[in-house]
Design a protein around this nucleic acid. Sequence first.
DNA 1: TGTACATCAGTGAACGCGCGTTCACTGATGTAC
DNA 2: TGTACATCAGTGAACGCGCGTTCACTGATGTAC
Lengths: 195, 195
Amino acid sequence: MAYRDKLRANILKVGRKLIADEGLSSVQARRIATEAGCSVGSVYNVFEDLDELIIALNMLTLAELGASLRAAHGSARHGSTHDRLLALAHAYFLFAAENKQPWRSIFEHQLPEGRTAPPEYREDQDKLFALVEECLAKDVTENELRKSAARALFASVHGIVSLSLDRKLGEFAPDATRRQIEFLVGCAARGLQQV
Amino acid sequence: MAYRDKLRANILKVGRKLIADEGLSSVQARRIATEAGCSVGSVYNVFEDLDELIIALNMLTLAELGASLRAAHGSARHGSTHDRLLALAHAYFLFAAENKQPWRSIFEHQLPEGRTAPPEYREDQDKLFALVEECLAKDVTENELRKSAARALFASVHGIVSLSLDRKLGEFAPDATRRQIEFLVGCAARGLQQV
DNA sequence: TGTACATCAGTGAACGCGCGTTCACTGATGTAC
DNA sequence: TGTACATCAGTGAACGCGCGTTCACTGATGTAC
């Protein structure tokens, strides 16, 4: 039992390193087994299949991302709506830039048809949206509208970060990305005050 | 020569259909050959390899997207900045929703390390950004700022559409997505006037 | 303590499948005489 | 018109490789007597 838990922890650690160094496509049964110092069979003793392992890895990343965002949210607690949104957005960008591959894996991995992620996974995601919602609490009192606005802002920042890191907007220049984020958050904050 | 051109056109047609019906991962040499009524070898006579074929297919999609956006931009020509941005954003969403798989392929396909897309590819992309820049011409006179703002807005709308269609923001509901786009464009338009 | 047997996690070779790409061959078309 | 030869696009079986997953076997540990 204890050994099994240690092995599970070790496989997760190795998987995390593989994703970080080489990306999701390097999370392969043989690679995992070699690096974890066990046999392929053992990997399948601990995880149902590779999809389950990848989901577990993505949940780890989601948890780290959550911690980063919560920290930023905490530091900016006493600032204006604009400053708090900007702190969250910058933290998101920073996390994505520093954990590029693990962060990409979250969006890259698609479960096979008909299979669905565990409920905790969605719950972890909702917690991230909740942070954005909190920033909007002062300015948007209506519940549904705030929820929708929070998701829109999250997705917008995600879009900027995502296309930047994939170099789909031209060469990757952190400063350019930061300016785009500031522009977006600036517009949002000014726009919100007038609603 | 004529035959070769016909075959190339046919392969593109078949490839487009495969992407639309089943997604990028179904663009396989054998599938293409079977559906196009030629041999695998012939596919390799017309295209250097599958990456080249996929890039050609993505350029077709990019051209169609460009046509849709230009049409929307044209119709809204006489509207306010807000209305023109909204028209573009809605057109983008509509195109993505109606051409989900081809649209996704543009972002999904990654060239192997060290290989680079043909210059026309990037040019086609820049034309899309140019449309957004035009919408901002009245409100943002400074060149670099307008360019950066246009990319930020494009990426933001892309983020909303992208996460919505991938169901990463919860269930996919077109109306919810439309509201998010309206919220974003509304904030942007209001925010821009105050700069 | 010693012996025989049961249990079960761990193992890794092998299975099954998929897929990009190649290349020796075919057969139709063109050319020279 | 007829014959011999050259050319070359087209073909598809075969190569090479990768990878998820399985399962018959191993060997360590526990149990009964």
